[in-house]
Write a protein that binds this DNA or RNA. Structure first.
Lengths: 152, 152
DNA sequence: GCAATTTCGTTGTCTGGGCAAGTATAATTC
DNA sequence: GAATTATACTTGCCCAGACAACGAAATTGC
């Protein structure tokens, strides 16, 4: 094995780390392009629709949505603006807490999601899932679990 | 095992995929913040310095640099602009091909890199490397290899 | 029940980065 | 060797997203 001094990374460590950066960068770019050209839908938009579909009654508070799609609150405000313009989502004042808003998926939004989903799933499958064995998928999932913050 | 139909992902597949997105997002954000607050150096800047240091004579063509840091050419043009303002890098017309430019690391740039490196390495170690076993690191490296484009 | 504080979302502003067009040099073709 | 084509960067323009400041509603403390 390579020595692992405190102020440098071994080749293995470096490969594991830089691979994450490179792979993510490439896959995110490719999948976004694919979705955009096939359906005129950027990946961020797709992800909002997806999370809304999965939510009870197809609605989510703005803040929860932000967390789901890994964006800042203001980022989501504007993202939902665009989706509302497209008619894929509507904002509804939340009755229980009148500060809050629910973003709700419209029929049109759901239709768009269903149209785009096969493309995206196929893209993930082709570039990611299908290239890995079940053992490798398990290993990945285990790694992500281990890396969750606050878990020592 | 979960069935793997052609138009949806199994839980395992989903966990492997979404984990990549989440983990990358969180780590990139945290490491960038850390470097920025500790040394006033964004992660992208750090990466340029790092790749230049590793290059022969501490210099790289703009295009090669773009590839290294996973950015577009215009992105690197502007990134090098900023680094040149900071005095960490200089552009030198390439004698062999006078269209081209080399970005060269300055002494100041090298000093800054050396100042920032321990912070960044410690960050990677703490959040990533140290949480994984050697077997897991190997598994990750293997996965990245498998996912390289054009490899079936 | 009225302040003080906290929470939820939006808005103003700024910055980084992508694409397409532009400029300059090199390579190729005839 | 002149004209075309290709390559290496830069620039103009645009867009998405972050942060901080803000308003509105809820919660807490007294």
């Amino acid at each position: 094995m390579h020595a692992t001094s405190s102020d440098q990374l071994s080749r293995l460590e470096l490969a594991a780390w830089r691979g994450l950066l490179r792979t993510h960068s490439r896959l995110a770019r490719e999948l976004d392009r694919e979705l955009e050209t096939a359906h005129g839908l950027p990946l961020t938009h797709y992800e909002v629709l997806l999370h809304l579909e999965a939510a009870p009654e197809h609605r989510l508070r703005m803040g929860d949505l932000a967390e789901s799609v890994l964006l800042s609150q203001s980022g989501v405000t504007r993202l939902v603006d665009r989706l509302e313009c497209d008619g894929f989502v509507v904002r509804e004042r939340c009755p229980a807490d009148r500060r809050g808003l629910n973003a709700r998926l419209t029929g049109e939004g759901l239709a768009k999601l269903r149209e785009a989903r096969p493309t995206h799933l196929a893209g993930i499958r082709e570039r990611f899932v299908a290239r890995l064995s079940e053992a490798e998928l398990r290993a990945l999932a285990a790694v992500w679990t281990r890396l969750r913050p606050g878990i020592d």
